[in-house]
Write a protein that binds this DNA or RNA. Sequence first.
DNA 1: ACTAGTTTGTTTGGCCAACGGACTAACTAA
DNA 2: TTAGTTAGTCCGTTGGCCAAACAAACTAGT
Lengths: 401, 401
Amino acid sequence: MITSTTDPQPADFADVRATNLAVVLRSVREHAPCSRADIALSTGLNKATVSSLVADLIDRRLVRETGLTENRVGRPATMLVLDGSPYAAIGVEINVDHVIAVAVDLSGERLLSWRRSFPGATTTAAQAVAAVAAIVRRVVNRMAREERQVLGLAVGVPGLVGADGTVRVAPNLGWRDADVCGDLTKALRDPGFPVRVDNDANLAALAEHRFGPRAGTANLVYLTGEIGVGAGVVLDGRLRRGGQGYVGEIGHIQLDPLGAECRCGRLGCLEAVAGIGAVLEHPALSPAEVEIELDEVVRLARAADSRTLSTLATVGHNLGKGVAMIANLLNPEVVILGGYYVPLAPWLLPAVEAELRGRTIAPDAGGCQVVASTLGYGAAALGGAARVLDSVDSGRLPRVS
Amino acid sequence: MITSTTDPQPADFADVRATNLAVVLRSVREHAPCSRADIALSTGLNKATVSSLVADLIDRRLVRETGLTENRVGRPATMLVLDGSPYAAIGVEINVDHVIAVAVDLSGERLLSWRRSFPGATTTAAQAVAAVAAIVRRVVNRMAREERQVLGLAVGVPGLVGADGTVRVAPNLGWRDADVCGDLTKALRDPGFPVRVDNDANLAALAEHRFGPRAGTANLVYLTGEIGVGAGVVLDGRLRRGGQGYVGEIGHIQLDPLGAECRCGRLGCLEAVAGIGAVLEHPALSPAEVEIELDEVVRLARAADSRTLSTLATVGHNLGKGVAMIANLLNPEVVILGGYYVPLAPWLLPAVEAELRGRTIAPDAGGCQVVASTLGYGAAALGGAARVLDSVDSGRLPRVS
DNA sequence: ACTAGTTTGTTTGGCCAACGGACTAACTAA
DNA sequence: TTAGTTAGTCCGTTGGCCAAACAAACTAGT
């Protein structure tokens, strides 16, 4: 059955065409290299229809023919692959002290991955927007030199982002009601591609959903382990944002009424008892110092320093409470730990899993697994690119040249 | 754009037709009585197309012409309404000591609402299935006498229900791994309509989503207040079930590590500190006794008995912690309190709202409101019927006779 | 009463996209 | 060389939407 996202939308031929173009595009992405006959078989579309759709995709330079099969019975098949060269999707993430920009081609191949530090300790929204605009302009120029058309840009911000791309609150950046999307669009002056702003955890979840080892998992949750803790939630194959776009704000849920005081003033927030701050000795460090001290923690843990191990176990158990909450409420197939949790995962995961299993009412934790992200730093930026590719995959193809 | 629920599904004409039939059907449901021209205007479909679609719906007896407009300029319009008479949707809920069966017609009009108590104190799955089969047979007979075709049946069970309709665990019923859906289908012997089993909170959420005062709200959460506490979650307009169907199992999330002991053996579960058990004096009562004692609590609260008010305030604050968790993680537009929470709502809601506002990181609680359900007992049964109507609305129309 | 204007809903013809089957193309195997 | 196999195109058909013309049935104004 056809089901439109916004319900009362009628369908016509154009929709059928767009749907089937997207189906074929996804099929090529999944099975490349493959022949038209393969696509017809795997999608159930008629061979003639597939030929027509593929011709259309080739016209749009989304798909490319690449040689023939050999040494097989029957007529050789002309193989199809996604055409990587003519397009690019850009993702950016804004962090406390730096921005990361990533560009990928249509097949998800990473074209570039740039990082730029902010000069000062704190950054206003306007400064950040200027920095993002600058780096994006450079990326766009690079793409233009490679004769790629930019399909879109998505920017991840650690904070509450409304549906319109306005940043309502970003505690770690100190922002409030900043129209990042509007300002950025203005700063880029008629960029010719859509610009979107989203929560960093949301985009990182999308990155895992498209590029991670568990790509394609219909229900997954990504937990950021930065200064703050947030979650990106994919349910039934799509990112869920809720009524105002604030899904996954798990950082200040109280785990223990008698727990440590959080930066937000409340007691026992997940962020306070299971955030990176609970791992390190000295609170309120700069990001660079955090990394240094984190390395030291890893070194001590490797050396089986008992105090470090006990701290990590405590944090792991606290984190496990949070993961169990997610498992009970959202029943994902997998919860992916990102950010600073990744290097600490060997010591955190046992405690997390123990808590998860002990606290979920569903047998076997509802089939929920916990893993550390393998995407590395810049997951949200990569997710921004995934966001752009998603919109292509769901049928917003670039106009034929 | 057309977006299929299971992604790689290609579309063809039949899909366009089914989509547009459903669009017109929903339009009639929403704007009835209305003319073909009204539908064309509101859906954007062509007048000719609407005529053809309406003719099809009339053939299927889903829609009926009802008189002409008068005293208006121009040719009088033939008004259309949903045809209530030829179909029925059945919903059933299984409770600890009784079952409730509800039938509604296509327009949601309630045709009957039957309740049947179980004889013994406890009921096995087999006994319950037999009782449900018996009451459903009687409902089906009644519908047959009224010459209605039964479109489907959905049964709500308070427990973990897998995607296949198997009840994995139902603590309050004492069931484990009961194939309720399979057994019920067998007991009904080729019923000629689809039989589904779902979690009671899920169905109640659907009931609110279709019939409640906040019907149509894209993101809502229903909280059951029975012996156990569970949540049904509607996000982006659809019920979300997660990986194995266990979304919303909030009852045994720990609110306070030092809280009261729960029936599950853990400490400080939501169910233990905010369930109905925390309101009443005597734990482990039979459902009938609970109702009696609940009436007494309401009486005392009305009389401003200070101990009762303080108990309710405590429970309200605890419940508020749970609602805040939901608001932070899922960001719904509304959380609806059901079951035993409804009569207690006047005393619970102030505390719940205070906690909600104090514990949500998003400004204004992310736009989340808390209200008491107005659907009364049998919400899950009504939701079962809603589940059946949903599948009609999304395009699974009954075959033309 | 008659005409002009308005609105409804049907009819007609055109268009578009998918489909099935026939057909051509290009290979392997014997 | 021939038979068999597989790939992809061509062509006529089908089905559903659309635009526009048209018929139907009313009100309003003279």
